[in-house]
Simulated scan of single mutants.
Amino acid sequence: MLFIDANAVNRFIVLLAGFVVVSHMSSLPVEDDSMKSATFTSLESVFTNKRINTDLIAEFTNIMKIACMGECLSDLNCDSVGYHSGQKKCRLHDVIVSGSGGVTESGWEYYSMQEDFCSQENFVHNRILDICYYIPPGSHTCPDAIAICSNFSANLLTVDSQAKQDWTHDLCVSENIDGTFFDAFLDSHLSVWKLGKTGMELTYTYWDGGEPDNFGHCIGTKPYHGWEWHDYPVEWTAGIICEIRRP
Rank of each mutant, 00 (worst) to 15 (best):
G210K: 09
S139K: 11
F117D: 00
G239D: 03
R127F: 04
P137A: 15
I128L: 12
Q87I: 00
G101Y: 05
K222F: 12
D166G: 09
K36M: 06
E109L: 10
S74N: 12
S26M: 05
L156C: 08
I128Y: 05
W207H: 09
P136V: 13
G138S: 11
N7Q: 15
K89T: 07
E175A: 10
P212E: 05
T203L: 14
H140T: 07
L28F: 13
D144R: 12
A147G: 09
Y111V: 08
G226V: 06
G70S: 04
D187I: 01
S150E: 14
D183F: 02
T41E: 10
K65G: 05
D75P: 00
D178H: 10
I219P: 01
C132S: 10
H93N: 14
D170H: 04
C132D: 07
K50N: 15
F60Q: 05
S37P: 02
F181Y: 14
M1D: 09
G216D: 09
D32Y: 06
M69H: 03
V30F: 09
G18Q: 08
F185Y: 15
S139Q: 13
I66W: 01
D55G: 00
S161F: 07
N7M: 15
V97M: 09
F182Y: 10
S23M: 13
G101E: 03
K197E: 12
L28I: 13
S150G: 11
D33C: 04
L16V: 03
A147T: 12
Y133H: 13
K197L: 13
I177Y: 02
A154F: 10
H125V: 04
E235S: 06
H189M: 05
Q114M: 05
T41D: 05
V173M: 14
M69E: 03
C172P: 03
G138Y: 11
D166P: 06
R246T: 05
I135H: 02
S100W: 07
A67D: 01
D231L: 09
D208H: 10
L129S: 14
Q162D: 11
A238K: 09
L156V: 09
E228Y: 13
